[in-house]
Nucleic acid binder design. Structure first.
Length: 204
DNA sequence: GCTAATCTAATCAACTATAAGTTGATTAGCACATTAGC
């Protein structure tokens, strides 16, 4: 991460991403935007990121945490461009404008996928350093690598639950990532066991 | 239909201030998260 590029203070940690420390001015802008637009689209997040000189992915996380911790009403379902104009009336001052455009969907090439899958088989929980290295290698933002690993783990867990027998056979044939077979995470010394289904072995 | 993007809820962990609260980062998702682009 080009942490020196950004104006917020970064604190070095071992395996996780450095904790972002927003300045008062940055928080003021974030809170102000949140009060008007608790579900910003990609364009808004990008604009905010430029404005307060941070990464768009940090804005995303900040909004997620903010929504979760401030008793905020969940996003109304089935918003449409036409009907959404009247949304948000239950919360004075809060807009639920038409759902803004998402980030453009990333399309991975065969070689990018090959690299990602290879890395996943080595360690399904890469730390920030590994993710950044991978991101650099395949030429995508680190945040995309993080999302790819999240989705990959999710799909694999789902697949294991739906087809436990088939998954076992795959494991026997070595098709399941080592991380599910008790391989060691060399970055933090954490052991992953197949029974743990990833999460219970997380001991940051 | 597949899967990237997004979401909630729970939890970990750094920080501030010195025991506990705040908040950024990470994770799973269970009648198997949902939404949406290709």
């Amino acid at each position: 991460m080009a942490e020196d590029t950004y104006s917020h203070k970064m604190v070095k940690t071992n395996h996780r991403r450095c904790r972002t420390k927003f300045t008062e001015e940055q928080l003021k802008i974030l809170i102000n935007t949140f009060n008007q637009k608790p579900y910003p689209g990609y364009a808004t997040k990008q604009k905010l990121a430029l404005e307060i000189n941070t990464e768009e992915s940090r804005i995303q996380i900040w909004f997620q945490n903010r929504r979760a911790r401030h008793g905020f009403q969940k996003r109304p379902e089935a918003e449409t461009l036409e009907s959404s104009q009247s949304q948000g009336q239950d919360q004075p001052g809060v807009e639920f404008p038409s759902r803004e455009a998402r980030r453009c969907r990333t399309t991975y090439s065969a070689s990018q996928l090959h690299t990602l899958i290879k890395a996943f088989m080595k360690n399904p929980y890469p730390g920030i350093d590994s993710r950044e290295e991978l991101a650099k290698e395949i030429g995508v933002p680190e945040s995309r690598v993080q999302i790819w690993f999240q989705n990959r783990r999710s799909r694999l867990l789902l697949q294991r639950k739906r087809e436990p027998v088939a998954s076992l056979e795959q494991e026997e044939q070595g098709k399941i990532p080592e991380g599910l077979q008790g391989a060691e995470d060399t970055q933090n010394g954490t052991n992953f066991t197949s029974d743990s289904h990833f999460s219970e072995a997380r001991t940051w």
